[in-house]
């Protein structure tokens, strides 16, 4: 009897701790989200009740902020990066998964280790190169540097999915006289498609949230959403209500995407160190 009461108290205690953790996770998100619907005066007060307004979302798309341009830049940059990276990554992943290659380990480690290179180190030569090529403040430049960021993740994730596809169907088709390319196109790709889409979503999130490259390489035409956050200044100071509105547009789509790929989100970042 004493034991079961102790267990109940322990359970309650655990429940309370977990609830605390959930609150700590949610409160900052809620605070930014709610700020987006506040009038400027309400932002400067800690009231929990306020009259919600949609005016902020109107204002961020108008001059001088023109957030739709940043939204377009972010979407195009992240989208193009993913569209270029995923086919390349799929090809490489297939080769690493199915064949023995000379220097396989070296090549593989070389590709994976690049995700640890500090962005601030490689952006210095990039800046000078893009300056020489006249590519500063263009979306093309951002796509190029983002490729270096997401390719290792894409290769690793897709290889994991292809590893999980059994070899038999592939071999049977090869014996029946299909060419390797036919096998890949007709058998492997359809089976790996969910995995490839997962990797694409993961990489889209990474590219969308990327900040350091964007803040250095762009300054007006190619500015992305995260960099655009620093635009909301006026004479009276920082315009927190507009920042919050822009913040919602940055985080909500990514929350949605992350939910879609839930389980694989963890694996992607650890290079599959944890299954």
């Amino acid at each position: 009897m004493g034991n079961s009461i102790r267990k109940q108290v322990a359970d309650l205690f655990q429940f309370a701790l977990i609830l605390c953790a959930a609150v700590v996770i949610l409160v900052p998100i809620y605070w930014i989200a709610s700020g987006a619907f506040k009038q400027q005066v309400d932002v400067f007060q800690l009231k929990l009740l306020f009259t919600p307004t949609l005016a902020n979302f109107n204002e961020i798309f108008r001059s001088p902020y023109n957030l739709h341009e940043k939204l377009l830049n972010s979407t195009l940059v992240a989208g193009t990066t993913v569209i270029v990276a995923i086919p390349m990554a799929t090809m490489a992943a297939y080769s690493f998964s199915r064949f023995r290659l000379r220097f396989e380990r070296t090549m593989f480690l070389m590709i994976l280790s690049t995700q640890f290179v500090p962005a601030v180190v490689i952006v210095l030569p990039y800046f000078l190169l893009f300056r020489d090529l006249g590519l500063l403040d263009t979306r093309l430049a951002l796509v190029l540097v983002n490729l270096s960021l997401i390719l290792p993740f894409a290769i690793w994730m897709i290889k994991g999915f292809i590893d999980g596809i059994p070899l038999d169907t592939e071999e049977a088709a090869l014996v029946d006289g299909s060419s390797r390319l036919q096998v890949i196109w007709n058998i492997v790709l359809p089976m790996a498609l969910p995995g490839i889409l997962t990797a694409a979503i993961f990489c889209f999130i990474l590219a969308w949230n990327e900040f350091l490259f964007a803040v250095i390489i762009t300054n007006s035409k190619a500015v992305t959403m995260p960099v655009g956050l620093s635009l909301f200044h006026a004479e009276e100071g920082v315009l927190w209500h507009l920042i919050s509105a822009a913040g919602i547009l940055i985080m909500l789509p990514m929350f949605g995407l992350a939910m879609i790929i839930q389980k694989h989100f963890v694996q992607g970042m650890t290079l599959g160190a944890v299954r």
Binding site: N209, V215, S230, I243, G247, M254
Partner: peptide, 14 residues
């Protein structure tokens, strides 16, 4: 999953 899907720049300014 939510905090990690959030842009670090947005976290900073928030």
């Amino acid at each position: 999953i939510l905090p990690f899907a959030m842009s670090p720049a947005l976290i900073g300014i928030s």
